[in-house]
């Protein structure tokens, strides 16, 4: 069976925009992703080293802002939904495969190292940016937040600025 073509980007954009609008109307907040990673990280540390959590400023501030278990978090549920939704879509469009995707000029090892480093940078950057592409840039754009739109330009501006140095990774 052949994999289905991707959706028209403008149509996908309108649908995503309407979903974001519905999210804001229902919940008063936008979409997100990195917050779920943060919750998972905090939950892990809480389980593994509870005394450390009590003595560390970052965790103390997190629990001040969030009541209850870090996993009882809106974004954790939303990201579980993303996993389910993307899986359904992958099944429907016949795109489920185990695959390590990489540019033609690098080895699998390099790709793995790059993915880890890229992830680490996002983990750190999304804390400073108070959100990632979804939580800060996209949702911020919808509510015309200055911080969100500035983050968006910094993400994409930064990526264009650095792209040249990492072109070997991709083309």
């Amino acid at each position: 069976m052949e994999t289905t073509k991707y959706m028209n980007p403008y149509l996908a954009g309108v649908l995503l925009g309407l979903l974001l609008l519905a999210t804001i109307y229902i919940t008063g907040r936008g979409l997100g992703a990195s917050g779920a990673f943060k919750s998972a990280a905090v939950a892990t540390v809480e389980a593994v080293a509870p005394t450390h959590v009590e003595n560390s400023k970052f965790y103390a501030e997190y629990s001040k802002e969030h009541q209850g278990s870090p996993l009882m978090n809106w974004l954790v549920f939303e990201v579980i939904g993303v996993l389910i939704g993307a899986f359904i879509s992958g099944v429907v469009s016949n795109r489920l495969t185990w695959k390590l995707e990489k540019g033609p000029r690098i080895s699998s090892k390099t790709r793995i190292a790059a993915a880890v480093i890229g992830g680490i940078l996002w983990g750190i950057g999304s804390q400073l940016g108070r959100g990632c592409t979804s939580g800060a840039a996209l949702s911020g754009m919808a509510v015309m937040s200055a911080g969100g739109i500035i983050t968006m330009f910094a993400i994409f501006g930064g990526a264009y600025g650095f792209a040249y140095f990492f072109r070997k990774f991709w083309i």
């Binding site: 992703a33 480093i117 996002w122 750190i124 950057g125 940016g129 592409t133 983050t151 330009f153």
Partner: peptide
């Protein structure tokens, strides 16, 4: 913070190839 964070995320984008949601 949002500018520095954004630039770090931009670097992460071209190295890692993803953002968290994707």
């Amino acid at each position: 913070s949002v500018i520095v964070g954004g630039l770090i995320m931009g670097l992460g984008f071209v190295i890692g190839g993803f953002c968290p949601g994707t």
